[in-house]
Design a protein around this nucleic acid. Structure first.
Lengths: 145, 145
DNA sequence: TCCTATTTAGTAATAATTCTTATGTAGATT
DNA sequence: AATCTACATAAGAATTATTACTAAATAGGA
């Protein structure tokens, strides 16, 4: 069950208050744009989209803000082996499928893994906060062409 | 059971022949150095190490060569959310533990997952070639300090 | 409304990776 | 073994991705 945009915004504004983070229009817009996105945009792409409604927004602010959000756990930096970082708003636990050809990133869920407990050696390594699966392959669209 | 360095080198030279890849001293040294490494070095660190024995080796060659090897599946680019790419020689299937503090990357095995089959939606997405788990957390060393 | 610490825009700087080009060389052919 | 040629390399320049600096703007509390 995906949270509604409104729920996400409420959680967001609450998190800002909790963390003494000022609720600036830039932060709000960046968060909303990312929450609205179904792809996993890079900072640059997000910046381009936001420029429509906020022509003076700087790319640096997008990077800085995404970094801040990521530290608070409000957004995730998606692990890829690409050079540009991709972002998403933290939702329910999920994993990623990445096409080696077109680089498209798709979410999927896999409860079997979410519920599985990690091997003992991992627990003795330290404190875990996130386990994420990244599956690489080639999507049908690219296989056809 | 970890393959011996000799086995890896044989597999490497064979792969070069198969793929019409010239067996240059640079390629050989880069591969050997990476096979010998137990950490997951970046191109830059690998370059530094290699400079000991090959003072004229250029950083660009290390990047180019690692890229070539990665395409052939001889080495893996480790998925991290850091900006510098980390590399490893492809070994038996394994996964990665990454400490958010010190950024150290540790390998671990998890047969439970290796043997599990992915959800149906993933199979219908396309052809899969690798499923990798990246676990983020904080290692004991960093928890203590 | 005013104050002040935080945040931002604009631009400069740095870091990571890739490209360009002249030279070198692996490996096939003789 | 000598020659040839397409591919690979070194060196440095160029690009790309991200972060830092600084003066001006502003969120949110007094």
């Amino acid at each position: 069950m995906k949270p509604t945009l409104k729920n996400q915004l409420d959680a967001f504004t609450q998190a800002c208050r909790d963390k003494d983070l000022r609720l600036t229009p830039q932060r709000l817009e960046i968060f909303k744009e990312l929450a609205r996105a179904t792809d996993h945009p890079t900072a640059e792409i997000l910046h381009q989209r936001l420029m429509q409604g906020m022509p003076t927004l700087s790319l640096d602010t997008v990077y800085r803000t995404l970094g801040t959000f990521a530290n608070l756990g409000l957004v995730n930096k998606v692990e890829t082996s690409e050079s540009q970082a991709h972002f998403e708003v933290s939702q329910v636990q999920h994993h990623h499928l990445i096409c080696r050809e077109c680089k498209e990133i798709i979410d999927f869920q896999w409860q079997y893994i979410d519920n599985a407990s990690l091997p003992e050696e991992v627990h003795s390594w330290g404190r875990i906060d996130r386990k994420n699966i990244v599956v690489y392959g080639t999507c049908h669209k690219c296989l056809k062409s």
